[in-house]
Simulated assay, not measured.
Amino acid sequence: MAKMVLTAAYLAINGTDLSTYTNSIELTTEVDEKDVTTFGSGGWKEVLGGLRSGGLSIEFKQDIAASALDSIMWALFGTVVTFEVRLSNASVGTSNPKYTGSVLVKEWAPISGNVGDDASVKVSYPTSGAVTRATA
């Protein structure tokens, strides 16, 4: 079984590579559980998958320089934009699939932290539409 340490993950939002600002990425997907149990189920619960959804959680290292992270994300606030994530910034392939879709940029925290902390921004965005996995 192969093991991996995340050292160079890739994140692009709205076509812009934001990997250099990012130190944590989590893409989750789930499906609603729908109970379809009947009297004919023999006393066992039966379920089917319903609507699918997902979320993209990110921790950024803030940068407020002109044309840097804060200005990029502020311009996207309140919009649905594309994303792409990979475990490695290497080329997409069978050993490095990409996951793509769209997210609603529903929050931005330009200032967050305590005295002595690094300036980090933690956000969570819901997916909008399908999340796809590709190896090419």
Score class of each variant (00 low, 15 high):
2 A>K: 06
2 A>E: 10
2 A>T: 08
5 V>M: 11
6 L>W: 02
8 A>P: 05
8 A>G: 12
11 L>S: 01
13 I>T: 00
14 N>S: 13
14 N>F: 01
15 G>S: 04
15 G>A: 09
17 D>K: 10
18 L>D: 07
20 T>E: 13
20 T>W: 02
21 Y>V: 05
21 Y>A: 02
23 N>Q: 07
24 S>N: 14
25 I>D: 02
26 E>R: 14
26 E>A: 14
30 E>L: 06
30 E>F: 05
32 D>P: 06
33 E>P: 00
35 D>C: 06
35 D>W: 06
37 T>V: 14
38 T>I: 13
38 T>Y: 12
38 T>R: 12
38 T>D: 13
38 T>V: 12
39 F>P: 07
39 F>T: 11
40 G>L: 13
41 S>R: 09
43 G>Q: 08
43 G>N: 11
44 W>M: 14
45 K>D: 10
45 K>H: 10
46 E>P: 04
46 E>T: 09
46 E>L: 14
47 V>C: 09
49 G>F: 00
50 G>I: 11
51 L>G: 14
52 R>P: 02
54 G>T: 08
55 G>L: 04
57 S>F: 03
60 F>H: 02
60 F>D: 01
61 K>E: 12
61 K>M: 12
63 D>M: 00
63 D>G: 05
64 I>Y: 11
64 I>R: 15
64 I>A: 15
65 A>F: 08
68 A>W: 06
68 A>N: 15
68 A>T: 12
69 L>R: 02
69 L>N: 01
70 D>C: 06
71 S>R: 15
74 W>H: 13
74 W>I: 04
74 W>S: 15
75 A>S: 15
76 L>P: 00
77 F>C: 00
